[in-house]
Amino acid sequence: MTSDTPRQLIACAVLATALALLPIVAPNPYYLDLATKACLAAVVCIGLNLLSGYAGQLSLGHAAFFGVGAYASAILCAKVGITPVVAMLAGCLISAGIAYVMARTVLRLKGHYLAMATLAFGVIISIVLNREVALTGGPDGMSVPRFNLFGYRTTGVWAGYGLAAVALVLAVRTAIVFVNSRVGRALRAIGDSEVAAEGLGIDIARYKTGVFVISAVFASVAGSIFAHADRFVSPAEAGFMRSVEFVAMIVIGGLGSVAGSIVGATLLTLLPQLLAGFDHYRHFLTGLILILIMIFMPAGIVPTLLASGRALHDRYRPFGRSARSVTGRTSEG
C-alpha cells in the first residue's frame, strides 16, 4: 500500500471541515435531512463507483445491499434488541456474504453478467421484504429504534447527519487508499483491458470479487445508518428504481471519480426537492436535465470540469504543460 499524497489528505480534510460546518450554516434541520440523504447516497455511490468506474462492472441491484443493511438494523434492533453497531456489522456480514457468493458464481464470465445477477437478486430481495410481513412489516415498512452508542442515545436529525457525515469521510478515505493501492492499480488495469491485465498475471476474478464485496459493504453501512436516521424503513429502499438511481448518480457525477460520486449523489438527491414546485412538469424536467447533462458532459460532471479546468490552466502556461494526461479518470477526492 502506498501512503496517500498530501493533496488527497487535504481533500479529505476539506471535506470533513465542510461537513462539520454544514450544521452551522444550514438554516434548519430540513437541510440537514437532505444532507444526510446526500451523504448516504454518496457512500453507496463511492462503493459502486469502485466497481463500475475502476473494475468496469455494472450493478443494477445495489439498492438491495442498502436494503439488506437497513432491514438488518431495523429487524435486529427492533425485534431482537441487539445494539445498533452490532446490527450494522451483521448487515455488513450478510451483504458481504451475498456479494461474495454472487461474484464467485458470475464474475468468472465476461460481459454484463454481474449486471443481470444483481438485477435479479435485487428484485428478489425487494419482493421478499414486501412479502414477509411478519418480519419486515411488508409494504408498509417498519419503525426503527434510535441509534445508541455505548448506551448513549442519540436524538433528532443531528445524530443521523453526524453518522452519515462520518461514514462519508471514512468512505472517501477508504476509497482513496484503495484506489492508490496495488489492488486499485490492478483494478484499473482490469478496467482498461482485461486481457492485458491477465497477461500481467492479475487474478481478475479475485480482484473483481473483492471490489464487489467492498461496494456491497459500503451500501449496507449506508442502509443501516439510513434506518436509524429516518427511524423507518420501507421495501422501496431496496427496489429496482433505487438501484437505477445509484447508477445514474455515478455516471452523472463521473465514473472513476470519488468526487464525482459525491457530486452525482448530491445533485440527484437535491433535484426532486428543487423541482418539487413544478407539479405535473416534474418528471419531464428531471428527464430533460439528465439528458442534457449527459449530452454536454458525457464523461460526467467532475471529469469534464477537471478536464476543462486543466485545459484552461495549460493554455495560460506557455512553458511546460501539465504532466498529467486528461483521461477522464481521476482519483483525487
Partner: peptide, 17 residues
C-alpha cells in the same frame, strides 16, 4: 410518490422550512 423516505424529507421540509 407513496415513498416513506420522501415522505420523511417532505415532512421535515413542511415543518422546518
Amino acid at each position: 410518490a407513496g415513498d416513506a423516505r420522501q415522505a420523511v424529507t417532505y415532512t421535515r421540509r413542511l415543518i422546518e422550512d
